[in-house]
Design a protein around this nucleic acid. Structure first.
Lengths: 190, 190
DNA sequence: CTGGAAACGGACCAGCGACTCCGGTAAAGA
DNA sequence: TCTTTACCGGAGTCGCTGGTCCGTTTCCAG
């Protein structure tokens, strides 16, 4: 039931929808969630009317952007998690998520504040990631690559916090490396 | 020149000013920076007019709250830094700042976004803390208690990021302890 | 006690930003 | 090509929030 009735979008409509998502992603990450919707429409080269037809509310647009990001992350971790040994998989995914998350926390917060809490479409994507993280953590702990007393909530909090740390630092690869090294060292047993 | 001309405030004025600061601190931290000024006035039991007489702008109120917090932190670190040995002082201050910072990052961001950047009164307080951190870091590194390749910017970023981590976790002392242990372990040499 | 200055408070104003509406435009099938 | 109709665009609406104004209240010096 209920898979949204997919009547194929008209050519220009699909194009505009994509342009809107791209523009929103760009603008939200660089200038924050506070930017007026009109700016996003302009950045996408369409009118506000078009924006609101595709996304009935600003929050919905935010959500769509988030979902897309989470899916990207999920895909990335799937790839990394598949082949590698436990330790490599775990730390690789940690790095990937943290890097992909730059500037994303702000929307997550905005979303949480706006709706009662995160919407169902987000739940789906985030559940995938959550499950994968649980697996990665478990495997890495069994392999002795990660301290045994760490639970999933702490791991997730650390991912978010480390993202905030790197965001705070600005784009300085050397400093990023040192910070990640600090965290990774702390994550290993004893 | 320009120490603000301190004509002693009338009794009720001083009382209301204090009530406003307290209410603002409370409301901003628990419900975010987005709350209408009127809510803050109501929480303080005064009218908006009074609020805006004491703080000519919402941003100014935010700033006053921040300054007060920074001063609290500065005082706390001064105490801790004075007596203890380098390692203890460093990690003690780290913990103190992180705990005091819960929910504070959001305003810092809001402030930075609002004004061109942080106002002069904030500069003063934050410079004190920055200097103290530099000293603590240096002492701890000389004593071999903290890895030598860590610079001040990374330390500050880590403070903010760790604050975000704990905030994300909610109030769970055990989990807080584990997270701090991860970070502290990572900060020590090798 | 009392006069006047300082402070209060909340009705009011203005600007902004999310969302709507409808005349115009162009995709796609006959 | 022509008609139908989904889709576009941006001017306009409406609620919300930061900030002002001024009649009323409170403090306190003489």
């Amino acid at each position: 039931m209920s898979g949204t009735q997919e009547r194929p979008l008209r050519a220009d409509a699909a194009r505009n929808r994509a342009k809107l998502l791209d523009a929103a992603t760009e603008v939200f990450t660089t200038r924050g969630v506070g930017v007026p919707t009109e700016e996003i429409a302009r950045a996408a080269g369409v009118g506000v009317g078009t924006l609101f037809r595709h996304f009935p509310t600003k929050e919905a647009l935010l959500e769509a952007v988030m979902v897309r990001r989470l899916e990207t992350i999920a895909a990335g971790t799937a790839e990394l998690a598949a082949g590698a040994e436990p330790a490599e998989a775990f730390f690789g995914c940690f790095r990937l998520i943290v890097e992909q998350s730059a500037g994303k926390n702000e929307f997550a917060q905005a979303l949480a504040a706006a709706g009662i809490d995160v919407h169902s479409s987000l739940r789906a994507s985030s559940a995938v990631i959550r499950t994968r993280l649980a697996e990665l953590l478990d495997r890495a702990q069994r392999a002795g690559a990660v301290r045994a007393d760490l639970a999933l909530p702490e791991l997730i909090a650390l991912l978010i916090g480390t993202g905030a740390t790197l965001e705070q630092l600005g784009p300085d690869p050397a400093a990023h490396g040192r910070v990640l090294d600090v965290v990774f060292t702390g994550l290993r047993p004893h």
